[in-house]
């Protein structure tokens, strides 16, 4: 009985921990499937977390707050697109630049607006995503429903086919008369919205307000989950769940005090490497990932 309760608690914790990772990893999935590496998930999440909590705190509405987070994510995605799609800049550098700039900008803006040392005010119940059913909030349901939705969009619609094609072979897409840049921008719009929501989950669901650097590396972990999941929706979800489950389990294991806390703390990462090593054989990477598309001019 005791054990059963513990396992249930563990699963519940894993689902909570997986939600922001999943939203961010799906965000990355859209961008990378279209051929744009997105290392800026961390920065977009941080900005989304702040914008969501700030807007919710000012307007008093959780939904307006969520919209703020989405729009902020999209603005950063457009910046990323401007640098990497329009001007064919290095995608990795652009992503890192956004992360670093946001790590500087967000606390500055937060301090300028609220003067609380880089925090937003505490959010009340009406400004937060509260549990709606089965002990989970709307964003968690949205995140897990987004998995089949993404699968359907990518593999069952013409837009998804074109998007995947742009990530595999933009030249062929271009030859077929389809706009490469526009497709990539569309992917980035979805990417920004989801990444913003991933941040909103942190500040408006898991916590009640924004605090400095609260993404704490989750954006990078999401990229790892995406690659682990081979850029496909369901495996990516499973990867997020695995990370989250390992994380939840280590919290439980630590309290037993058998192993040094550092080893237990590293268990999720060790486990990931082990699973990856055993499963082996990568693949699934979009072939044009990271390569800016240069339209052939009639030379």
């Amino acid at each position: 009985m005791e054990t059963a309760t513990q396992i249930l608690l563990l699963v519940a914790a894993a689902i909570r921990l997986a939600t922001p990772l999943l939203l961010a990893a799906l965000a990355g999935l859209y961008a990378e499937r279209s051929g744009v590496i997105d290392l800026s998930l961390e920065g977009k999440m941080l900005a989304g977390a702040f914008a969501g909590a700030a807007v919710a705190s000012v307007t008093g509405s959780v939904w307006v707050g969520a919209l703020g987070a989405i729009l902020t994510g999209i603005v950063l995605s457009l910046l990323h697109g401007f640098a990497t799609v329009t001007h064919r800049g290095n995608q990795v550098v652009a992503g890192m630049a956004i992360n670093i700039a946001m790590a500087g900008l967000i606390p500055t803006v937060a301090q300028a607006i609220f003067a609380l040392g880089g925090q937003t005010p505490q959010l009340g119940p009406a400004q937060r995503f509260l549990n709606v059913a089965l002990g989970n909030n709307a964003l968690t349901f949205f995140a897990f429903l987004a998995v089949p939705a993404t699968g359907w969009l990518l593999y069952r619609t013409g837009w998804g086919l074109r998007l995947r094609a742009v990530g595999e072979n933009p030249y062929a897409v271009d030859t077929a008369g389809l706009p490469v840049a526009r497709l990539r921008y569309q992917a980035l719009l979805v990417n920004g919205a989801l990444a913003g929501l991933a941040g909103a989950y942190l500040s408006m669901a898991a916590n009640a307000g924004f605090s400095r650097d609260m993404t704490a590396g989750k954006g990078y972990l999401a990229i790892a989950a995406l690659i682990f999941g081979r850029w496909a929706p369901v495996p990516t979800m499973l990867a997020c769940l695995l990370f989250a489950f390992a994380d939840a389990a280590q919290a439980q294991l630590q309290t037993v005090r058998i192993l040094p806390s550092q080893f237990v703390g590293a268990l999720p990462y060790i486990l990931t490497v082990l699973v990856l090593a055993l499963v082996g054989k990568g693949g699934g990477m979009p072939k044009a990932l990271g390569i800016p598309y240069v339209k052939e001019r009639g030379a």
């Binding site: 914790a13 650097d213 590396g217 939840a248 919290a251 309290t255 005090r257 806390s261 590293a266």
Partner: peptide, 24 residues
């Protein structure tokens, strides 16, 4: 019961992790 949050500087700024450790 004792929990430590992490081993990198992020451990001091991770309220989400803190909430999970508390819930556990």
């Amino acid at each position: 019961l004792e929990n430590m949050t992490g081993t990198t500087p992020e451990a001091w700024n991770d309220p989400t992790r803190g909430a999970e450790l508390a819930k556990a």
